[in-house]
Nucleic acid binder design. Structure first.
Lengths: 210, 210
DNA sequence: CAAATTTACTTAACAATGTAAATAATCCTA
DNA sequence: TAGGATTATTTACATTGTTAAGTAAATTTG
């Protein structure tokens, strides 16, 4: 049916309009400044129209959350070129930190805010994006173990640890908890990268004897 | 003057009443369920009375935030007994994780939520509690370096790294991001402790040759 | 001790928020 | 073109933080 098909398309277009407006507010003014009324203003519809396309506000945020994972994935395209798994792990960490520091609002939604996870549980859906990212991390860590860069052991446990480390850095940084450690803002990213260096060097066993 | 003195005391008592009520709501129902009106209900005053004792809602949260650091500090009393600095570092991590997992709302306020930090900047005050905690961490790390447990280097950078690691674990856990890694809730704390073990073992150079 | 003033508190109100129900406009089909 | 379905808007409500104005009691002052 050509007509219902076109309708579907229109519906999707307005959905996209809403998401775009939300994202604009979201990235420019931050999480808590995204209101239904502001979104409605931007797309030039009445506030309640938004509810014809999304169940509620959290539903919108959940979609942005997904979009964030897509963005992050795109930024990781350069990883495939790196043969050495430890170097790749290092680069993954760098990319992760870089993404978090340049897209703090997205990072917030993806890894800090509670709302999207509630939606995820409520929708009981798959969340393939996140799981895929985890999968890539675990695979790289496993490869590091096989090739003698990391102590052999539970690759999932080590992956969790690596993730925790970089997440700790980023989330402390964007929530302004590192001011005592790093008073100058422009030093933040360099210091974080140094910290990552230290971490990778410490877990790397490839240069050790006995 | 006995009268103004008594008045001061009363004023402080009501402040405490407000803080206690806030804390009750806060720990029992969580951050976003603390409203001025609910606080007022609990202490049986009108909502606006709260504003006679605190500048605004964030001011209340800031005071709870401080209280959290005090609590955490009290829970660290057992650290002084530990002579071995690496063991002490390990125990610090364990305590940190334990505190976060048993007082998620406090942890949220102390290390995740943005509001208290805004207040801190606005009040431009000292935040001795937090700084003292950092100081203890750095001192322990430095001692680990001196005694040959950790690679010699920038103790502050390593401290930042250690903190980031445990903060990453706790904040991912309490924001429900570890469900893919650790599906069973009761396994969460054990796995986190395992992760900490792995971390400490990896940074410990005391057993290595060359 | 009476008048004036300060203090402690409440009532009323405002503006912003998410969201639901009722209503209107538009569109498609018979 | 009439009528039902879809899409949008208007109204409305409850909740939020917060301010301004009002009031009664306590305290100070003459």
């Amino acid at each position: 049916m050509g007509i219902t098909e076109r309708k579907e398309k229109q519906k999707l277009e307005i959905r996209k309009l809403i998401l775009d407006a939300s994202m604009k507010l979201f990235t420019e003014e931050g999480f808590e400044h995204v209101t239904i009324r502001k979104i409605a203003d931007l797309i030039e519809y009445s506030p309640t129209t938004v509810y014809l396309y999304f169940k509620d506000k959290d539903d919108i945020f959940f979609n942005l959350h997904e979009l964030g994972f897509q963005r992050m994935h795109e930024l990781n395209a350069d990883l495939d070129d790196i043969q050495n798994p430890l170097l790749r792990l290092h680069k993954m960490g760098e990319n992760y930190i870089h993404f978090g520091m340049t897209h703090p609002e997205f990072y917030n939604l993806m890894f800090i805010q509670e709302e999207p996870m509630k939606k995820l549980a409520e929708l009981d859906c798959e969340w393939d994006k996140g799981e895929a990212a985890i999968g890539r991390l675990v695979a790289t860590v496993a490869e590091c173990m096989e090739r003698g860069y990391l102590d052999k052991g539970d690759a999932r446990l080590v992956s969790l640890s690596v993730w925790s480390f970089v997440h700790g850095l980023v989330s402390l940084a964007i929530r302004e908890r590192l001011e005592k450690f790093v008073p100058e803002k422009e030093m933040l990213l360099p210091v974080m990268m140094q910290s990552l260096n230290w971490f990778i060097n410490n877990i790397d066993i490839s240069g050790r004897k006995s």
